[in-house]
Amino acid sequence: MPGIRINIRPEGEATTKSSKLNKLFKRLYREKELWFIAAFAIVWIAIFAYYPMYGIIYGFFNYVPGKKLSECEFVGLKYFIEFFKLPDVWLIIRNTLVISTLNLTIGFIAPIILALLFNELNNITFKRIVQTISYLPHFVSWVVVASIIFSMLGNEGVVNDMLIRFGFIDKPIGFLGEGKYFWGLLTAANIWKGVGWSSIIYVSAIARIDQELYQAGAVDGLGRLGMAWHITLPGIRPTILLLFILGIGGILNAGFEQQLLLGSPTTREYHEVIDTYVYRYGIQMGRYSFATAVGFMKSFIGLALVIVTNKMSKKLTDMSII
């Protein structure tokens, strides 16, 4: 995709300036319709997204709601430094990264595979029913999901009961109480809840693939696996890449509610993530600035990662989201 940079303030010598300006106006005139539409989008986003961004400044002040910013003390990077001085900060960064990475690998691939498998179903009615059912867990709140998981995986839950009955183990496994199981448990729960929902976009992307390509593939002697690999997958590649790049940007968001609901004191060393920490040290303690500062840091890293990944993607695959 050849990107065209726009010159808002063309610089150069006076003589070429006017001709450049002329060119620019000509160009803008040609694009007037598009700019007319764009103007609405720009005004809208200026009001609803960019104007409120002044709130970011609060992260650099000791802000108390109700006070004017001029009355608040400027503290610079105090809250950023404080974050890194929190006890266990490296532990929570580790947990955040591990949980996110699991979500970005296993959790990312699962809906793609599911969409591919949906695509291989012959019976359309069956396909529609399975698709619909697969997205149901999205509608069940985490509280309910957690309570179901507890009743399944508890010491007296169905799973332990089965394992003991069939003689695999003789003492119940503390799936919930032991930290080492937590990451796996969380990833499984995330997938359970989200895989059907996330597959929707891939299902729609698959529908876009030209049927003629499959016919041509059949002529070339491609089997079903070959078609999935050589036609379907490349066909949804833009969507996959897009979601992956965006996902990389969200690497510091490792979930919040599920940690609070599935975690217990014995799993703390595994479940505590940046968001749960900031919630307690910022919002619950009424330290608005601290929460803002950490949020800003997360956004900054997120956007930087998106830009870097996007650059790499552009180099490697010639696809870019910007």
Binding site: S147, F150, G154, N155, E156, P172, L176, G177, T266
Partner: peptide, 11 residues
């Protein structure tokens, strides 16, 4: 109760 650390009030 082995699940004592995980029980919510309702459990």
């Amino acid at each position: 109760d082995p699940d004592f650390l995980n029980n919510k009030f309702e459990d």
